[in-house]
Design a protein around this nucleic acid. Sequence first.
DNA 1: AATATAAATGAATGTTCGTTCATTTATTGT
DNA 2: ACAATAAATGAACGAACATTCATTTATATT
Lengths: 196, 196
Amino acid sequence: MRYRDEHKELLVKEKAIEMIVREGLDGFSMQKLAREARVSPATLYIYYKDKEDLIVQLGLEEATRLTTTLLKDFDPAMSFEEGMRVQWRNRADYWLENPVKAALLEQLKHSPLRTRVFDTLDKGFIDSLGRFVHNAIANKEILPMTREVFWSVAYAPLYNLIRFHTEGISLAGEPFRFSEEIMWETFAVVMKALKI
Amino acid sequence: MRYRDEHKELLVKEKAIEMIVREGLDGFSMQKLAREARVSPATLYIYYKDKEDLIVQLGLEEATRLTTTLLKDFDPAMSFEEGMRVQWRNRADYWLENPVKAALLEQLKHSPLRTRVFDTLDKGFIDSLGRFVHNAIANKEILPMTREVFWSVAYAPLYNLIRFHTEGISLAGEPFRFSEEIMWETFAVVMKALKI
DNA sequence: AATATAAATGAATGTTCGTTCATTTATTGT
DNA sequence: ACAATAAATGAACGAACATTCATTTATATT
């Protein structure tokens, strides 16, 4: 039998992500994708059940890659300071090194497909980060607070900095540029809020 | 001459926002909108130049309402503590009292139309909030930092709490519910980070 | 070389899309 | 009552859409 052309399959994925990020979910169509990837529209239906399945699969795959990246060098038993540093490092790395794929996840997070992509996130990932916070509170390293409050104070500022950077938003005169320096400066401010 | 039916015009706006929020920008179409608002498709082209113009106008109108709301009871000459309290109050009020319209703005912020909707935000609004932060730093009420870092630490946690609430995201067992109590608890933590 | 099999295709399906236009409707000033 | 005018309409346009299908192509096994 004839084998599936993996190069072709990868090209389809790449072009699909590009198009979704560039033109939004509404600018994305199967026929345009087929044209861009130099493939017959029918081929897409060999790879994927339908349009929604294609988008969801791309999202799931990338969400998995993200969780894997975020656990690199991380251990829930780490000290709070050290664990937080690793998390900020990993999150910044992922967003800055994969801006297009990160933008795909961002699009999906604000779309009707959000549930289908993010509701089945890796259990180990959620557990690991949950235990980390639990430990820090138990050890009296940080103020006691719910996970939602913790997440909002601990990570939302970082994500917002990255968003300002990638979307070229400037609140002052010159456009804002993310840097290691400004990241760790913000980190210090955030840590000041959390530590006892 | 015949006058424009304002009730009809308002209904079109309302249904359009509903549909965009419910089905995303890609699920939104002029023909479906016409059907839902019991209007001829052609009528939409009396109100708006084309589809994009319709979306952008809805966005601009709502963005204006938002900036007006955020300046209520606010004065850049306020003390840092007081001004921040008003800002958190206003922002929470807007998002919780207008969840659908807020969701529209959120959608547009993550779409290719972002620039057309948000790049011409009211000057007075930006100036007012900018002066507020500048004053606080000059008076040594808070640590010196760029506006982007300030915004990220001061407001991103609040927006994230609201997002968790409206999207029904739970990091622990039971679904997360926003409340005044949790809001001011988070406020206190954030203020701890910013104050000298 | 022949067979089997799944990949890949181009053309075609019917549907929905955004937009236009000739016509009708409602309201004002004469 | 009538003329003037803009609102509002339903039907229609071609274009693009998601998806299907009969057919061809490439490869592994016989």
